[in-house]
Design a binder for these strands. Structure first.
Lengths: 156, 156
DNA sequence: CTCCGAGAGTTGGAAATTCAAACCCTCCCC
DNA sequence: GGGGAGGGTTTGAATTTCCAACTCTCGGAG
């Protein structure tokens, strides 16, 4: 999963290098839902057990999950999201919203998330400074490293 | 990339089935930045050419990109995001924000995005209904299919 | 004491993907 | 007619994934 050539330096790529492998974000989904045990994860995610074990190790190493024993004798472990892991939940919600909109009929969504405000959660990405919904036309990227440019939007 | 066993039905998984393969979201990053040509994508993403060709086909098939000739004789093509593709940009921004926060020093971010409001973009995921920032403790998931439950938060 | 099952992985080998480099084709230009 | 540029495809070798079976530790039932 190492970057091959000399690609654009970018936090999107860096983040995906940590959580972009197959199943990683689904592991995070499950632990955020409160499912913390290996066998639950295997069942709910549908991943091969060995791959799941590899992903869990990686996520723990990356500081996104913690592993702790919930029972000595017999030793049994559970995985929980760290603060950093919880901060990825908005990514999951945004992915879910896209899938709900583009991959399902509105009346046939696989899962509904309720917000404590009493309404169903419809996540919207906004600009912290002005509060407006983030739209492509309002964005301008500025690479910080030399040699890297963007082609300018010129409309989609 | 097909779901193996009988995993939890979920739009996160469905979305990742479309854009979750290695490089797919980086392709989207580049086309959103305005880089539309095959060789640019190869260079900026650092993906093998054959893999990139496969990903582009898939993203076009999924309705996330369009492929169009920008020159006949010699035939030359470019890729652009569709509306559905642009609607994934908030996912990219949210991933970027996480990477900026957790993988870099604040003064050494690889890329800065400016919002048209005049400030640097700091994307925040909010609830459309109440406008509040989405936080883990405020969410409750309700699976729509039978047999699928969540374990309840019981705090992280 | 023995057998059974749960939980949490590990192992081995076959199947699928990825990678890198080289190759191809169509033009344009000198 | 030789050299790019642009946009891929081909070819093996190197990695990963997948699946089933296996392991190991206990707790409890009979």
């Amino acid at each position: 999963m190492a970057a091959t050539k000399d690609p654009r330096p970018c936090s999107i790529a860096d983040t995906l290098a940590v959580v972009g492998e197959k199943y990683s974000l689904l592991v995070l989904r499950e632990v955020c839902l409160g499912n913390r045990r290996f066998d639950q994860l295997v069942r709910n995610i549908g991943a091969p057990r060995d791959i799941l074990a590899t992903r869990l190790r990686r996520l723990v190493d990356a500081g996104i999950l913690t592993k702790r024993a919930y029972s000595e004798r017999p030793q049994r472990f559970e995985y929980r999201p760290t603060q950093a892991g919880l901060e990825l939940e908005p990514v999951l919600m945004t992915l879910m919203a896209w899938g709900d909109r583009h991959l399902h009929r509105h009346d046939d969504r696989p899962m509904v998330v309720e917000h404590s405000c009493g309404h169903e959660l419809a996540p919207v990405v906004t600009c912290r400074a002005c509060g407006d919904t983030v739209r492509h036309e309002d964005l301008t990227a500025r690479p910080q490293a030399e040699g890297w440019t963007v082609a300018g939007p010129t409309a989609a």
